[in-house]
Design a protein around this nucleic acid. Structure first.
Lengths: 133, 133
DNA sequence: TTCTGTACTTAGAATAAGTCTAAGTTGCGA
DNA sequence: TCGCAACTTAGACTTATTCTAAGTACAGAA
């Protein structure tokens, strides 16, 4: 049941331990953008043994390093994690703090008019607004 | 000499005390994007009396609230402050962490193709790359 | 001028996010 | 089975920021 997660980890060079598999599975299975603490809360109930915060942080950092997930920095003072590693941007609901993925093709290609010494690797658009229901 | 700073604070509804004037003057006079701690380091030598970190944070928050400066969130775990409140984006040098302002007109107007329930207030582009010298 | 109240500042304690450390486990290969 | 390297744990530590309680400054009333 978690075998495709184990494969995902393995193909990215991350040894699939029980803790890592459950953390990765949780991230892949949500389109919220949880903080480390939210990951810890959600995952610790699912493991038969106790889970250390250090393991959560180590795992999240390892997954970021390996390219399995991305860090999202929107609010000051907290990092969120996103298992959507396709090219995309973020919409932040300023009322709730909720973060939504915005597919890159929904943002028209950006033209930048920078001085030649600025060499661009990538860019990221953060859109602020409200989601009306 | 600091009178235009005092005026700036007053017109934004911030009572210009000695500490606030020196903090605001420092921010207006730099195009680095200092952290609260960098502000504290730089400013505490310029004041005849001792300066508390709490005052730095209170002042920075008051200035943000009043619209005199903006928060910049690029790295996790630290907030930077920017006295450039005109419409602009940021270029982050991934090697040095240095942040440069990019005038809004250097970024071609963005077209967003979002579902109608997403109501956009503003957007911000963070460009990652390197500055070659 | 003195009194008084409000707003400001201070030092240091408290909190929160994240990292480090030392010790205990696990599990693979010889 | 043994040894070793990698993993995990609890809790201490660090760093950024906020809170708190006490002290200070200063404008307006008496």
């Amino acid at each position: 049941m978690t075998s495709h997660i184990e494969e995902l980890l393995t193909t990215h060079g991350v040894k699939p331990t029980a803790q890592r598999a459950v953390i990765a599975e949780y991230l892949v299975g949500t389109d919220c953008h949880p903080t480390a603490d939210e990951v810890f809360q959600a995952v610790s109930t699912k493991l038969p043994v106790s889970l250390s915060r250090a393991t959560v942080y180590n795992t999240l950092n390892a997954l970021v390093e390996a390219g399995v997930i991305k860090e999202v920095v929107t609010d000051p003072g907290r990092v969120r994690y996103d298992a959507n590693v396709s090219d995309h941007h973020h919409f932040v609901d300023v009322k709730t703090g909720q973060v939504y993925d915005v597919d890159a093709h929904k943002v028209s290609a950006l033209k930048l008019d920078l001085a030649p010494e600025f060499s661009v690797n990538s860019y990221h658009v953060t859109i602020f607004g409200e989601v009306k229901k």
